[in-house]
């Protein structure tokens, strides 16, 4: 599994990257929204984890632009340092899979990402057989 981590907090990067690496997942870490958008359009990722508050381009703007620029958009998990119902609602509107507030359980997050990925693969399998 290949994950794009868009985050500017070094501690969160360290925690998530360690957990992903321990589950044999590859992780690419980018610190701002514009660079992340560029990388996401050029490379394949199975999931994206993005902070809601990014520099230059906010996390929600990043998801919004991602939706329009990428038809095969990977699932996006949003991280926020503070609970905020409006941002949470907006994130779900933009198609985020989950809105995670700190403090969070990185093990659960990665378990969920892996299981979502397996479910997607299973869903897509019959279509491939039919073809």
């Amino acid at each position: 599994m290949r994950v794009l981590l868009v985050e500017n907090d070094k501690m969160i990067i360290k925690i998530i990257a360690n957990c992903l690496l321990s589950r044999d997942c590859a992780v690419v870490s980018i610190q701002n929204g514009y660079d992340a958008l560029k990388v996401a359009s050029e490379e394949h990722f199975d999931a994206i984890i993005s902070n809601v508050f990014l520099t230059q381009l906010s996390g929600l703007e990043f998801i919004g632009k991602l939706s329009t620029s990428n038809s095969l958009r990977p699932p996006v998990y949003v991280i926020s340092k503070t609970p905020n119902e409006d941002l949470e609602f907006e994130a779900y509107q933009l198609g985020a899979i989950d809105f995670i507030t700190i403090p969070f359980d990185p093990v659960l997050l990665i378990e969920k990402m892996i299981s979502d990925q397996e479910n997607r693969l299973q869903k897509n399998a019959p279509h491939i057989n039919q073809k």
């Binding site: 969160i12 360290k14 969070f104 359980d105 093990v107």
Partner: peptide, 12 residues
């Protein structure tokens, strides 16, 4: 302490 602050669950 810095790391603990961010976490819940097993790693915490």
């Amino acid at each position: 302490i810095n790391t603990h602050h961010y976490l819940t669950g097993l790693i915490k």
